[in-house]
Every structure is written in C-alpha cells, then in structure tokens.
Nucleic acid binder design. Sequence first.
DNA 1: AGAACAGAGG
Length: 719
Amino acid sequence: METLTLNPISIPPIIPSHLLSSATTIPQLKQIHARILRSGLDLTPSLLSRLLSLPLNPAAAPSLDYALSVLLRTPHPPSRLRCRAFRLLGPRRAIAAYARLRQDGVDFDRFDFPPLLRAAARAGEGEGGEAVVRETHGFVLKTGFVADPFVLTALVRGYAARGCVSDARAVFDRMPERDVVAWGVMLDGWCQSGCYSDALQLFEEMKSSDVAPDQVILATVLSACGRTGNLSSGKAIHSYILESGIAMDAHLQSSLINMYSNCGSMDIARKLFDEIPVKDLVASTAMVFGYAKIGEIETARAIFDEMPEKDLVCWSAMISGYSESDKPGEALKLFNEMQASGVRPDKITMLSVISACAHLGAIDQAKWIHVFIDKNMFHDVLMVRNALIDMYSKCGNLASAWRVFEGTPQKNVITWTSMITGLAMHGDGTSALALFERMKAEGVEPNGVTLVGLLYACSHTGLVAEGRQVFESMVHEYKVEPKLEHYGCMVDLLCRAKLLREAFELIESMPFHPNVIIWGSLLGGCRVHMDVELGEIAAKRILELDPDHDGAYVLLSNIYAKANKWDEVGRVRRLMKSRGVSKEKGCSWIEINGNVHEFLMGDESHPKSKEIYGKLEEIIQELVLVGYSPDTGSVLVDLEEEEKKEAVLLHSEKLALSFGLINSTRGSCIRIAKNLRVCEDCHSFMEFVSKVFDIEIVLRDRTRFHHYKNGVCSCKGFW
DNA sequence: AGAACAGAGG
C-alpha cells in the first residue's frame, strides 16, 4: 500500500480530491483532515462527501466515529450529506448525531426525516427509537411537512417498527394521499406486529380504494395468510392475481408457494413449485418447511438435498423440521454438517438446536450446546436463555436450569413460565407455587401457558386445594380464560388425587369438546386407582375419536387384567388385532460417557447384553431380600403367571438401569429416558434400587421426571 | 437526494 508523505510544502492550498480518496486508514485520514483545517479552508460539501464515502472498511467502527465527529464539527452540513451520514452511521450513532445537530440549531429539511426515522425504526431496544419517532412526529407537525408523502410514510414505518401500530394507523389515516408504498408500509406494519387479520382487512380496504396492489403488497398479504393458516383468503388472493393479470415474478411465486406450504396444502405448493424452471432458495425453503410440518420429513430432506446452495435459513428450516418431528438426533447431526459447510448459525437456529437437545434429553449434548452458545455470544439473547432453562429441565438437570434462570437479569413471562414448568415436571410443586408468587411480586403478569405450568405443578405434586384455587382465580385475578389444556390439567389433578368421579363431571361440564388427551388422563387415573366403569367410558370415548389409539386399548386391558376380568382382556386384545393396532414398543435410553444406549423390551442386541442380564439377575436377587416382588398388573398379554413375571422383568428401563449400574459408582446419579409412561412395577423397582444400591436415579417418562433417592420417588405416587 | 416485499422461531 502506498504511504502518503504529508510534507506541509507539498500540500496545495486546495486539497485535491484524489489525495483525499487515496487515504485508506484512519491516521492518514486524520492527517489530511488536519491539513484542511490548518490551511484555513472550510470543508466544502464535496470534500465532506468525499470524507464520508472514503473506501474505508465499513466494519471499522472508528472510521465512522471519525466521520461523525467531522460531520458534527462542520457548522452547516448540507442535508444530503446528513442523509448519507445517517445511513452510514447505523441507527444508534445516527440518533446521537441527530440529537447533536438539533442541539446545535441546524435547520432540518424534509430530506432529513426519512433517514432519521429509518434509524429510529431500526434502533435496538433501549436506544430511544420510539422517543425519536414521537419527537420527529411533533417536529413534522410544527414545521409544516404534514403533506409530504415521503415524510408521512416514513413516520408510519417508524411507528409500526416500534410496535405502535395504532399511532401508525392514525398517521396513515390522516395522509392526504396514499400511494402504493404507503399502503405497503401500513400492511407490513400490521404484519410485523402479528396483527394479520388487521392486515387482511386493510387489504380489503385497499382493493376498494383507487390504488391498485402491486407484487410487493400481494407478497406481504400472502405471507399474512400463511402465518395464520388462512387458506381461503390465500386462495382468494391467488385468484385475484390470476384475474388481474399482475406479472408473476420470482418473489410473488415464492410467496404463493410459502402460503400454501404454511397452510399445509402441499399438493398445490408442489404443483406451483414444479412449475418454476429454476428453483430459488426461498421457494425451496418454503417447500422444506411445509413438508417437515406435515410430517413428511423424508420428502423435505430430498428437496433440501437437491438445493445447489444452502444458506442459513434453509439449514435452520431443515434442522427445525427434524427437531419438531421427534428426530432430535438428526437435527444435531445436521447442525454439525451446517457448521462443517461454513454456515454460521444465528439465534433462530440455536432455538431449534436447543429444542432438539431438550427432546433428546441427553445431558452431555446439552452441556456441549451450552458451551457453544457461550462461545458464540448467544447467551445474552433472552429467548435463547429461556430455551436453555427448558432444555436443562427436560434433561433432568434442574440445578443448571436454576443457574440459567437466576443468571437472567431481564426475565420475561416466558422465563418465569419455563422455570415453573420445569419444577412442575420434576414434581416440585411447592417451589413452583413459590416461584409464581415471586413472579407476581416482581410485577410480571402470568399468561395462559404460565397457568398450565402451575396447574401441572399442582397436579404432579398432589396439591389439590392449591390447584383448585389457581383454577378458580384464573379468570378474575389473572384475566386468563381457561382453555382446553387448563381443563386437561384439572382433570389430571383430580385423577391423580383419586377424585375420578369429579374429574368425569368436570369433563362433562366444560365448554369444550374433550380430546383424546383429556379422556386419556381419566383412563390413566382409572387404571392407577382402579375404576372399571369409568375406565370403560373413557376408553370408549377415546376410540370414538381415534380408533387407532394404542394407549387406550393397552390401558383398558390393564384395568381388566388388574380386576381379573380375563375374558374382557381377551376381547380387547382381539379387537386390537382385528383393527391392526399394535402397542407402541417400550424403549429406554441411557447416556453413558456421552454415548446414548437404547434398549427395547427384552433387548439382547447390546454388545454387553450378557453382562447386563447378569447384573439384572443380581439386582433382582438383592431386591427380593428386602421385600420386592414383581407386580404383573401392567402386562398386556395373557401369559402364565411365571411368564408374566419374566415379561415385566425385561422392561426396557430395567435393562437400561442394569447397564447404568454396571457403569456407575455408589452415590452417583443414573439418568434414563423412556418413551412411554413407567409401569408400576418398574417404578417400585427403581425405588428399591435407589436405596439398596445407594444411587440416585432420574427417570424421564412420557409425562414427567421421577427422581428416585433413598427408596422414595419425588412423584410421591402422583403419576 | 428520501419511503415497501417472500423463506427458519415466537
């Protein structure tokens, strides 16, 4: 690089612009600027412009700071330079520069407002963006630019971007003339704030106005339809496009595909997608997302693999697809591939990855992801922290969840809810209720999800009176209308507390149609607390809603078996067989030294199978000495009593536990995850083992965590 | 010289 020799004699009285533009570093720039000032010349607009557009690295913040200081020291910079500077400086410094210029009494003209409002719209949280919009609005009213469409459109944009949609609408409504861009800004404003139905309504208004929608408007509105799953409006807009003869550009085509994808209409989306000669990134991503959402994850993957180049968004869509389709291992694998291909994740990617870890329940993976998050500076993002709380809870590590929670300075309602729900899953309802009180004391309003967590906590801890009280106070104290899931929690609460009849009455009296989950709670309660009559009703209702619901057959036959009604057990089994329903296989996982080992019932495929069965035999012998005897009530198949004992002793969680005991020492902790609910025999087996072998066991089943320590489980029988 | 759009999450 050429070095400038700044000999005073060689500087001509007028600085040639090529000299200025040859400066590429801050010190060179400062030297030249110093010469300019010393030579007594004013910085002419052209020189200032040159200064602001120097080919310095835009990422080099000091150069922008320097440009700013020059701008501020120039008494009356022309407005077009200010505009340029505002754009270059970025939101925060643009706002600061603007405040200084105003303080210095600089006259503003109408060209200043759009860039300023743009900065205010894009400013970060706590940088006074909204205040700038309001001030500017007042200023505009005073200075008589109220009729300028550019200024007003920028104001609408500013208000909308700060979430003040009604202010945006007020400005929009008072605009003397609204062109297509003004409509676009207002429509997008509603969408950005999640008010999609307002957006659609505004679009109807627009259609009856004298301004015709263009591609941009239609893309925005189609996106609104997609996000709300409003297929009928989406189709109407599709027809409108075809009828009005608006040119179908790539943007619009992608928007249409995305709308159909989001509404789950993959047949139509596919047809449109196949018609595109060159599949672009956005359209392909929409297809990947759509197929993943309807569970056709392999089709999604096929399209993903076909994409010639992949960006952050499509990687994230595919990762999220796996994570949401209960394929957490694939999600993590893809996350590694993404990094290997050189694409850096953002916070949205991280949310899916964290969720995958939560699904997997593997604590070592979870810790690894947490380290990754710290290293890559995502740990200050609130949503990431909230997801981490959930992840640690679901991985059975409440202590780490607490650490993340307490280390979060600005907690929002989701932060509190995640922690409350975590405590609930682990059966610590008392702490959940205490945390709820703390949350209210700190002035955070609970939402519907918080109350689900709280009711869930009461239910899983047997806090009947507290649960009833929370449910009663929902409407008048917290202004939350109970939804189906709240009733579900109450049914669960009553069932676990053996109040089966009351639970049934609640189902009958609630203002919603019960779903299979609600009837499932009742059926589960009937099995635990033995009520054949109600159990039959619940099972019947489930099978009316979903004839292939394997859980209903299994639980019902368990109830009959427990009541020694073997004819009925046989009848249920034959019914299952004739309808081609099979029981979901029990499956357990255990993580040893970062590796996940999977066991099915009676599984002999593990390389150390012999050793595992030996250990199991040894455990059983020890347990029998202290009073354990196999309880066969949960065995579905009708076998001889001895065979039933065999079957129950081969449950996957017992195999996983044996393997865990081989690989751990006294006083340590074994973590097991299971796909179904733990059976009664395994539950008491775990309790015995925790005492006899002096070991802590954390078992995650389909609905909650069980912590076994010293012969007792944290669920205290409420499961 | 100045104003708008589609795909990942919530």
